[in-house]
Structure formats: structure tokens, C-alpha cells
Amino acid sequence: MRILHTSDWHLGRSFHREDLLAAQERFVDHLVETVRAERVGCVVVSGDVYDRALPSVDAVRLCDDALRRLRELTRVVLIAGNHDSAHRLGFGSALMDDSGVHVRTDFRRVGEPILIGDAAFYGVPYLEPEIVRHEWELAERGHAATLGQAMRRVRDDIARRGPGTRSVVLAHAFVTGGEPSESERDISVGGSSHVPASVFAGVDYVALGHLHGAWAVTDRVRYSGSPIAYSFSEERHVKGTWLVDLREGGVAAEFVEAPVPRRLARIRGRLDALLTDASFARYEDHWLQVTLTDARRPPAAMERLRGRFPHALVLGFEPEGGGADGAPAWAERVRERSDLDIAGDFVAEVTDGPASAAERVLLQEAFEACRRKEALT
């Protein structure tokens, strides 16, 4: 069985106000051609098909076109990610099953496989911990507990299958060992966002979604990453899909690179140097995040930069030696900090004292309530 593993399409997303729909269409063309050329038996899409719960009409049209074209060539298994609305994405899934497009968005069905050839495919959509914990009456909170319970149900079904059945799990989660970027939505509320790769023991291949960089956590547990860069932190990513052969005794995976709409780069320096230094010429056709280090903020800086770098998108200002008060930039202060910690800082700022334990509990409950509401839309 040969499968093509992809995820995190985020259809409808823009890049700092740059429309990416044409680039996403190019990726779909590439995906279809890869399936045709490589004789793929099943395409697995591991969540975040759309960028938001209420996708645009153009995003829905592109998804419809992609699934229709893929179905003409192969079977498709698709799950909901944390950006998707499970209810909306799952509409009509029972009808689509008959066509060979299998959409799995209901966590209650994680132990029900889709059988394709000699392989059983188990769709484990994004599991919102507080919703799943109550439904499954789990004693523990967090992503590890909910995904652990889902995988117990998967393994129970695998045990009932014949010895020649291969197993493939699609999951949308943050597995320890993967490298995050700045464009994934934080899922840490409701307990630690990380789960160990060992939770997937006993499965032939695990097709992960959520992190945007392609990554082999183990030989059998992999992230395909997003097909397009969605933040400047992904400037060194190589985007694409995993072409996976399920073989007797193991798996073989080959990475297939996707087309690049435009290269990314982050550059910094004084404005005059950026505008005149020949060493920056190679960035003239890139999407750019520019950080100016002039002692004083130059007037009309972005307008002047775009005279040389027409695709400059983001402009920051970090004067050499630090700001006027010596404080680090906001991006540095919040990097790798949870929403709860940032909200706690806000409380401390407006009340002249750190958030109490009771206030942090209230903040966490508020975040969790927002997540539950979003997951149910």
C-alpha cells in the first residue's frame, strides 16, 4: 500500500495580507500530479484543511475541487484539525464515504477504521481535552490523556483484525520531538499540549498534522508539515508531502517537495545599508520581514524599502543597544509563553501585583470556555 501524507493546508489563509489562494491552487495541482505519477493508493490529510471554522467561499471551492480531482485517482482519508469546525467539515461525510472520500471529524468514531486494500486507516481528529474528557469520563486532564484513550480504542480494534492487516493512524496533535513554528495556534489550554510518541505504539504508520515543519519524530511517526510557509519562522522549512510505502516488516518514506510560491527571508540592519549594500540583492524577490536597527526610526521607512524590496511585508524597529528604556521588544517578551502566562502579565500590569492562584484558575477556565465554544461551532 502506497500512501501520500499531507496536512495543514489552511485553505483561505493569507500571508501578512498577501493572498495565497493561487499558491494553494498550485499545491493542489502538484498533489494531483504526484498521486498520478506515483500510483498512490490513498491520500491522508491530517487536519487543518481550512484556516478557520467559517472558511471563505473560495477556500471551500478549492477544497471541493481538490477532493474531486483526487477521488478520480485514489481514495482520500481526511480528519479535522484545531482550525477546522468539526461539525461543518463533517457535513455529508456519510454520503462521501460511498464516493471514496472519508471525512472523520467525530472523536467517538476513532476506533472505526476505513479499510482500503490490506490497510486499516483510523482517523483521530483534533481532540479538545475538556470536551473529550467529560464525554469519555476521563480522570486526567490534558492532551496526553485524551489521545491515550483514543489510541486504546484504536489498538482494541487492531487486535480484532487479521494478522496481515496494516494500520495507519491520522492524528492532529503536538507530539514531543516535533519543532513548532510561529504559525500554529496554541493548544496548551486544558493541560500540556505535548504528547509522547509512545502513545502511538503498535501502529504501522502515524500521519501527523498540526506542526508546520516536515519532521520524522520516528521512522513510523511523522509530520508532513504545511504545504506553504505561513510565518517567517518557516523560512528554512522545505515544504512537501511524505510518500510512504507500507511494506512487510516496516515502512519506507520519501519526501516529495512542493512548489514554492516565493522565498522568505528575515533581514536586519540600518536602513541606508539595506538600501545600498550589494549583499542584500539576493533578497529583492523574497517576501521579507525587515528589522531596522537605526538609532532613530527613519521616516517613510517601508515606502523606501519597497523601492528596492517590493515584497517587504513586515517592518520592525530594534535600535542598536535596545529601546529607549532598554526593554526587550514585545515579540521577545511573549515568545514561547502560553496564553495563560501572558494574561497573567496583563493582570499584574493593571493591578500592580501578580495574578493570584484563584485569578489564574478563572483565567484558565475562561480560555477553556472559549475553546469549547469554538470547537462546537
Rank of each mutant, 00 (worst) to 15 (best):
I3H: 03
I3P: 04
H5M: 05
S7A: 14
W9D: 10
H10F: 00
D19W: 13
Q24L: 10
R26G: 07
R26E: 13
F27T: 02
F27P: 09
H30T: 04
L31Q: 05
E33M: 10
R36M: 07
S56I: 03
V57H: 14
V60A: 02
A66I: 04
R69G: 14
L70G: 12
L70N: 08
L78V: 07
G81N: 08
G81T: 06
A86K: 11
R88Y: 08
R88K: 11
L89P: 04
L89N: 02
L89Y: 05
S93G: 06
A94L: 12
M96W: 08
M96H: 06
R104Y: 01
D106L: 08
F107W: 09
G111P: 02
G111T: 06
L115K: 03
Y122R: 06
V124E: 10
Y126N: 07
L127F: 07
E128I: 01
E135A: 14
E135W: 14
A139T: 15
A139P: 12
G142H: 08
H143V: 09
G148M: 08
Q149R: 11
A150R: 01
M151E: 05
R152D: 12
R153D: 09
D156H: 13
A171I: 02
A173P: 09
T176K: 00
G178C: 00
S181T: 13
I187W: 02
I187C: 04
V189P: 09
S192V: 15
S193C: 13
H194V: 12
A197D: 01
S198P: 02
V199F: 03
A201P: 01
V203T: 10
D204N: 06
L208D: 04
G213E: 06
G213Y: 00
A214Q: 06
T218G: 00
T218Y: 09
R220V: 04
V221N: 00
Y223Q: 07
G225A: 05
P227I: 02
Y230R: 10
E234I: 04
E235V: 14
E235M: 07
K239D: 05
T241V: 03
L246C: 02
G249W: 08
V251Q: 07
V256W: 07
E257V: 03
P259H: 10
P259Y: 10
A265E: 09
R268T: 08
A273G: 14
A281W: 13
Y283W: 14
D285M: 08
H286K: 10
Q289R: 11
Q289G: 12
D294S: 08
A295R: 02
R296F: 05
P298C: 04
P299G: 04
M302K: 00
M302R: 02
R306M: 13
G307E: 12
A312H: 07
A312S: 09
V314P: 12
L315Y: 06
G316A: 07
E318T: 00
E320W: 06
G321P: 02
A324Q: 10
G326K: 02
A329F: 00
A331E: 14
V334T: 15
R335Y: 03
S338C: 12
G344Q: 15
F346P: 13
F346V: 15
A348M: 11
E349I: 01
G353Y: 03
P354R: 15
A357G: 07
A357S: 12
R360K: 13
R360M: 15
Q364F: 03
A366V: 10
A369W: 00
R372Y: 05
T377F: 09
